[in-house]
Amino acid sequence: MELFDKLLPYLLSGISVGGQYALIAVGYTMVYGILRLINFAHGDVFMVAGLMMVYVSTWAPLYVAIPLVILLTVLLGFVIERVAYKPLRRAPRMSVMISAIGVSYLLQNLALYVTGGLNKNYPTIPWISDTVSVFGATTKMVTLVTPVLTFLLVVLLVQLINHTKIGMAMRAVARDFETSSLMGIKINNVISITFIIGSFLAAIGSMLFFTNYPGVTPTVGAMPGLKAFVAAVFGGIGSIPGAVIGAFIIGICENIIKGLDTLLTTFGVIQQPLGLSTFADAFTFVLLIVILVFKPTGLFGEKATDKV
């Protein structure tokens, strides 16, 4: 019981962060599933969504600001795809990835210019920033809202993919790019919609994430972006439930590692703190390499065969 009490705060924040990673990871996994592209700019889209919220909320009330920010983020995702990835559709994969890195560099520098490199305080969204107490551990409402909202959105998305016409088109394009275009599927529309959905989820994720976070800086998106990608790989790239489960596992593990020193010292396993929290970020990548070496297709990924 004592273990549970000590572990609970870390578990709670792990679940919350995991849900936020999940919302970003879905964007990665869908784009990768269709374009075979690691969209390095996705983490920065998430950061820009946070930044736009900061600026929009200075002049607009929240019930205007929230939909407006979501709309602008979706627009940003759409424009990035049209401007930076569409012209390179016939180019080698490496070129598109470099273009993605270029977009990420551009977004970070733009944010640096606009903010002047200062930390911008994120506006308080009422209700989800309220403090609640769960089994004796105090936390913010957002911690409880995140997993529920994530679950709802993902179920909706899976329904969309499995039971609508556009969802069918997405599955077809992910299976075989060339053939589906021959079958009359408008590839460019499908890809745009993929980016729109990805950016929409990233915008929601950013609202939940920054409520728990001191502020927005230009580089704040890079780490969650990379971790969300790792989550997508862990769950099996292209698989939406896989990405969500991967994100929760990464979020929880990361937070437990942050508190591992305290936990181990309270239970007398070690006498001196080991400074293990340094490895909270690195652990994600250890997990990535382990999964890539032992099961490259991830937990739920489809087996890919290489044709000569």
């Binding site: 592209l37 690691i38 400074g275 490895f279 970020d281 990535l288």
Partner: peptide, 30 residues
Amino acid sequence: LPVLRLKSDYLAIATLGFAEIIKAIFQWAK
């Protein structure tokens, strides 16, 4: 030894990850 068997973009993300791991190790208080 482990990562060079991976294909293009998986290799990219794995090496990026290793750079982060190395950074963490060098900052470790121990």
